[in-house]
Design a protein around this nucleic acid. Sequence first.
DNA 1: CTTTGCTCTTGAATGGCATACAAGATGACC
DNA 2: GGTCATCTTGTATGCCATTCAAGAGCAAAG
Lengths: 181, 181
Amino acid sequence: MAKNKRDIDLKVKQDELESTATRLFLSLGYDGTSMGRIARELGVAPNTLYWYYASKDELLVGVLNRQMSQTLVRLPTIVEKSLKEKMAWALREFEQSRELVATVHARLEQSEVIREWHDQFHRFVEAAVIHTLQADGVAKERAAMLATVGTFLVEGLLAHPHSERQREAILQWFSESALPA
Amino acid sequence: MAKNKRDIDLKVKQDELESTATRLFLSLGYDGTSMGRIARELGVAPNTLYWYYASKDELLVGVLNRQMSQTLVRLPTIVEKSLKEKMAWALREFEQSRELVATVHARLEQSEVIREWHDQFHRFVEAAVIHTLQADGVAKERAAMLATVGTFLVEGLLAHPHSERQREAILQWFSESALPA
DNA sequence: CTTTGCTCTTGAATGGCATACAAGATGACC
DNA sequence: GGTCATCTTGTATGCCATTCAAGAGCAAAG
């Protein structure tokens, strides 16, 4: 099956591409990284990237999915932990992507693909958090609301510089207030 | 005093400029609004703007300050209200600037002026919220932490689409959890 | 072995962008 | 009437995402 062979090559190439793009996006930011720069780093012409991705935003989606799938691999390590520890873990996971989180929010209005990715991401995260809360004995409606609050807190902590103590205090307070005694 | 006269003219011109820039930023977004577009709308050459502002980011700061000062005028109308109502008011105030809020966060890393404005803004808001919470009998340390949480919740609600019921539920829960019985 | 056709890459271009610079216009003060 | 600061503009630069049409490489079909 030559078709298959080609598909594999495609995936391999996309992987190199996204790997380079990820590194640059994380170090220089999305706006600070030009398509030309990514291409130069890969040793190809700038427009080559457009054979693989229709736009810079689609490349960003590829990068985000890549980051997400790596995070998902590490997810099982915390399923048994407390709510507070789970949130602290999420913060550590996304800390290096802080800037990309802000970029995603800023591009929501301008890019359909980003909006779709963002919405899907939130649906996934909220479902997971709701599940956790329900397992801890929180009623369904309330769990949904608290899941939203939890994600807002994580996003807020990611977006704003803060001390370890502040983070600790916020997570501690949220856990206490959210969970039944 | 001719100096004074000129200063007044300057302020008037800046005001027209920021008024137009505000309208465009709010309707088309920061990235969707080019300096050229603003200039065209004002009937001047694009580079004229650079006599008044050193950069597009500085113009944005002007716009943000303008919005803020308008909000400050309305601030006294809610000093007597409950924490929950205050937060709902803040959400209504900033709702039309949703996109700019995201822009500010996205540009934090790239623009020093934006970063300074943002930090100052947060210091101001947190101080105000802490004051309110302390008046409601919350201890100082705890008030500081809750003020941060409160702003994160407002920012989260601004950044993410939600129903009236969700908003209501979140604000209600936060008020109950934050304030002493 | 050659032709066809698909996948991938490129050169060259387009239009837009924020911004810089130096030359002008305007109007106040000496 | 000339000088000076304030304001405006023409023109240009370099960067950007993206497009398009032309090619290179290579597999399958004849």
